[in-house]
């Protein structure tokens, strides 16, 4: 795994080779956030790939100085969350015709009754509860606690103060604790 300084140098030297290294280094975190942000888990890889390609297109227009200042992980995650938001908006505007999409009248990815019933083991149940959080809390919990970003990075991705980021994450955690049944939190 390369660190960000090496990645930035690689991007300036050879954009495509450097970008492949960026994907190998940060692909897991981008995918993990996509997995917990996409409306349907099956879309996570599509969403992650689309966001990474958007990042590549942006990088093609950046000069060496701008690349040298990039904080890669929060920058990629910002692009991912924007991509997810645009996808949700597009899906709401024109329903997919391939029969694969849910009715687009739900702004947040709330699982249906079947998925609730199937969520027998704790991880599935927790994933469902995370998906049910309001967007700001969900995003903060995913960034801070699922992929374990420092608060400063969570704030950078959410474009808010560290205090606000902390409070979104804390309220999300509190909501999760309240909804988990006692035997599961003991």
């Amino acid at each position: 795994m390369a660190d960000d300084e090496q990645l930035r140098t690689a991007l300036v030297e050879d954009l495509d080779a450097g970008f492949e290294a960026v994907v190998r280094t940060h692909g897991d975190v981008v995918h993990a956030v996509a997995r917990r942000t996409a409306d349907r888990p099956a879309d996570a890889e599509d969403l992650a790939a689309e966001a990474l390609l958007r990042a590549y297109r942006a990088l093609r227009g950046y000069d060496a100085r701008r690349i040298g200042r990039l904080d890669l992980r929060p920058w990629l995650l910002t692009i991912l969350l924007n991509t997810a938001r645009n996808d949700r908006r597009d899906a709401a505007r024109r329903p997919r015709t391939d029969g694969a999409a849910d009715p687009p009248d739900r702004p947040s990815p709330v699982p249906g009754p079947d998925e609730r019933a199937a969520a027998t083991d704790l991880r599935e149940r927790l994933a469902v509860l995370v998906a049910e959080l309001p967007v700001a809390q969900r995003t903060a919990v995913v960034l801070r606690h699922v992929v374990d970003l420092p608060v400063a990075e969570v704030a950078a991705v959410l474009a808010c103060s560290e205090g606000t980021a902390r409070s979104h994450a804390a309220r999300g955690l509190a909501a999760l604790r309240a909804r988990l049944t006692p035997e599961e939190t003991s």
Partner: peptide, 17 residues
């Protein structure tokens, strides 16, 4: 919550590059 993060599918890099 940390267990909800898993590695990306091996195919992600080849889908992008």
């Amino acid at each position: 919550l940390r267990d909800l993060a898993g590695p990306a599918p091996a195919t992600l890099a080849e889908r992008v590059v």
